[in-house]
Every structure is written in C-alpha cells, then in structure tokens.
C-alpha cells in the first residue's frame, strides 16, 4: 500500500467537514465512514473556531487543512503557513482557484506555490486537473501526492474524464493518486478505486445528502469494494457476448 508522505491510510477515504446539518451529524458521518483523513479550513475567527477544533481533534483522524478560496500564490502560501501553525501539521491541501464557475485550479500558480511550500518543508497535496504535464511539474516541484479532480467541486458528476484519469494512473504508477472533487455517488467513488486510485476525497456528496451518516457508510463500503475489485484484476470490457456457461456438453434437444 502506498503511503502519503510516509503515512499509511488504512481507510483511503478523505472526508470534508463542511456543510453538515449539525456537528452531531458530522461526528456520526465520520464514525460511519471510517475516514482516515479530515479536511478543514481556516476562516476569520468569529467565536466558533475553538469548539470546532476540539470536535475535529476528537475524531482522531489525520488533519488535512486546505487553502480553499485562494486565487494567488501569495495568499495560498500565507494561508498554508497559518494552517501549519494552527493545525500543527506539515500537510496542506493546496487549492489555487483559477476559474469562478468551474473552480478549476490555476495550474500555473499551483505549480509555483507547490514549489515554494515544498522547499519550506510542507507536504503538499495539490488539487489539480488530470493534465499529465502539470502532474509532472508538480512532482518536479516537490509534491509526492497528486489529487486530480473527478469533476468540478460540489458538482457530483463523478469521473468526467475516465480516459484521462486512467492515463494518469498509468503515467504515475508509484505516486499516490487521490480523486479530489466531483464525487456524487458511492458508485463514483468505487469507480475511482477500480481505476487503481489510492484514495478518494469528498465532502458535498455526504454532507448534503438526505442522511449524511448513512451516505458516509455507503461511501466506505463502495471504496472498499472498488479497491478489492482493482486488486482482483477486473476483466476487460468487450463488444460481443461470450457465453459463460460451457457450450460443450449441452444436450441436443432441438
């Protein structure tokens, strides 16, 4: 099993902490999901930060702070430094948003910020596209994990470009790859794992469902099923039928 900067994850689900109907439901969703990682953010302190911090600590999972909403290298780097101090971790989910409607990463600034942060001792989890060249550049910048999007954040569309994600898996066989964003259903998460991805990061699909605790469990089971399926070496799809029941020995009855 691949590790994330030396940390193995027994459960390859990274679950967001935003948008739950209540803290109690968030807590239940995490426990049902078995997620190994919780993503968090930093926002202006208006009184709720310390309670939330206590709750996240009680989840006993790895904390992955993000730079959500950052549009420039400077603000992403500053946010990363603030996150390192507050959350006491070198991990940073590096988001550099380039497009308002699709929340597509600005990959040019992403590579630059990844280089600056890696040189400063951060362990960068870059939210990127499925572009192979950008992936190469991120690795050259010091990243040891890549997190391509499945589809735009919060869209729930699943894996928009399976071909590109397959190519990415084939291109970087030794690198831990995480599908980050776009997952809407457990089948999407299973799909990602069937392609050989090492983890799935999702938030909205669980938090905004009608029953987050139940959906969290569904995601856990789907990810487990997808991983097992990948390890079991699935058959190739084919265009024509092939009988599964033996032809030889069939009684002659017509």
């Amino acid at each position: 099993m691949k590790t994330f900067y030396g940390t193995p994850l027994s459960n390859p689900l990274m679950l967001g902490t935003a948008q739950y109907p209540s803290p109690a439901i968030l807590d239940q969703a995490f426990r049902n999901s078995g997620a190994g990682v919780a993503t968090v953010s930093l926002r202006r302190e208006a009184g709720a930060g310390q309670t939330f911090w206590q709750m996240v600590r009680d989840l006993s999972v790895h904390i992955l702070p993000n730079t959500a909403g950052c549009h420039t290298v400077k603000e992403a780097v500053t946010t990363a430094h603030m996150a390192r101090e507050v959350f006491d971790t070198k991990w940073i989910k590096l988001e550099l948003i380039g497009h308002t409607d699709s929340l597509q990463p600005d990959v040019f600034q992403l590579v630059e910020a990844a280089r600056i942060l890696s040189e400063d001792g951060f362990e960068v989890f870059p939210y990127t596209t499925d572009d192979l060249v950008v992936g190469e550049r991120l690795l050259a910048a010091g990243c040891e994990v890549l997190m391509p999007w499945g589809a735009p954040i919060g869209s729930g569309r699943g894996l928009n470009n399976e071909y590109a994600l397959r190519a990415m898996r084939a291109e970087f066989p030794e690198i831990p790859l995480v599908i980050d964003a776009g997952i809407g259903l457990p089948s999407h998460a299973a799909h990602a794992m069937e392609l050989g991805y090492d983890a799935v990061l999702l938030n909205t699909a669980v938090a905004r469902s009608g029953d987050p605790a139940a959906m969290a469990k569904a995601m856990k089971l789907a990810i487990e099923a997808g991983r097992l399926a990948y390890q079991a070496d699935p058959i190739e799809a084919r265009d024509m039928a092939e009988p599964s029941t033996p032809v030889i020995g069939k009684a002659f009855l017509s």
Binding site: V40, R44, G49, Q50, V86
Partner: peptide, 10 residues
C-alpha cells in the same frame, strides 16, 4: 490584521 481559526472545510 487577520485573525483566523479552525473552520469546516472540504
């Protein structure tokens, strides 16, 4: 001056 604290995130 900005003062930030842990918050929910995805």
């Amino acid at each position: 001056i900005e003062v930030v604290a842990p918050m929910q995130g995805g």
